[in-house]
Each structure stands twice: as C-alpha cells, then as structure tokens.
C-alpha cells in the first residue's frame, strides 16, 4: 500500500483528534455546568478572587478560597475532574462577607474555575491552574 505524504498528514490529524476527544468531553461538561448556572448570560472575567495553591502535592485535599464582593452565589468547578462540579456557595442575609474556604479533590493538574453570580444579576469568573502531584480520585 502506497501512502502519499498528503494521506500521512490526514492520518496524523485524525489520530491527534482522537486523543483529544476525552479532553473535549470534559471541557464540554464544564461548559454545560457553567451554562446551567448562568442560564446563558455573559460571564465577565475578573471580580472574583479564587485562591488556590499553584502546586498541590496531594490532590485529595486542596485548600481553596473564593471571594466576590456582592455575590449572591459562587460556584466552583474543576475542569479536569470526572465530574466538574465541586460546590456552590449561596450567601444568606447574615453572611458577614461573601467569601468561603474549603478543601477539594482534584484528579489531575487542571484549571479550577470560580463563577460568581452577583446580586445585580451579572456573572463573573476567575480561574487558576493547580498542578497536582498525586491525583485525588482513588484511580
């Protein structure tokens, strides 16, 4: 079988697309989660503070902190987890500050995303990459 240079290129592109598929699936799940939260509204970069370590040695407990002035709700997503949802914080009338911290599981090195819904109805996002040495999903 003679494989021309052009065909070789095509095969290579196909193989690359195949290996990228799982990544795209996870990405789509994250986008879906964001769309479900915002209802398709525009999301502005900034206005949310997401504090997470740059490098997490243990993906089982990664400390994170979210804060957003005037937020009604803050949703946290981990784009590289089997299920991107992490938590949603809803602030009540007696919340002293629109901030909270917790510990989360990260399966691999990935972006952690925080999306805040402000009381004026606008959405803001922030994201940070966390490098994970040991994944936290028991796999």
């Amino acid at each position: 079988m003679n494989v021309t240079r052009r065909e070789t290129l095509a095969i290579g592109t196909g193989a690359a697309a195949l290996t990228l598929l799982p990544l795209n699936a996870a990405f789509a799940a994250t986008e879906d989660a964001i769309a479900a939260f915002t209802g398709g509204a525009e999301v502005v970069e900034g206005g949310v503070t997401l504090t997470a370590p740059e490098i997490a040695e243990n993906g089982n407990t990664v400390p994170i902190e979210v804060a957003a002035e005037g937020a009604a709700e803050i949703m946290v997503l981990a784009a590289g987890n089997p299920n991107p949802d992490v938590a949603t914080f809803k602030f009540g009338p007696l919340a002293g500050a629109r901030e909270a911290s917790t510990r989360i599981r990260l399966a691999q090195t990935q972006d952690v995303i925080a999306i805040a819904k402000l009381e004026d109805g606008t959405f803001h996002r922030a994201s940070q990459e966390v490098k994970v040495t040991i994944g936290g999903c028991g796999g």
Binding site: N60, N81, N83, A87, F89, K90, T102, I104, R105
Partner: peptide
C-alpha cells in the same frame, strides 16, 4: 452550600 463528590 451544595456539595459535590469533589469535596474532600
């Protein structure tokens, strides 16, 4: 707070 399995 709504917790998902990704909470430690």
């Amino acid at each position: 707070v709504v917790l998902e399995p990704a909470i430690s």
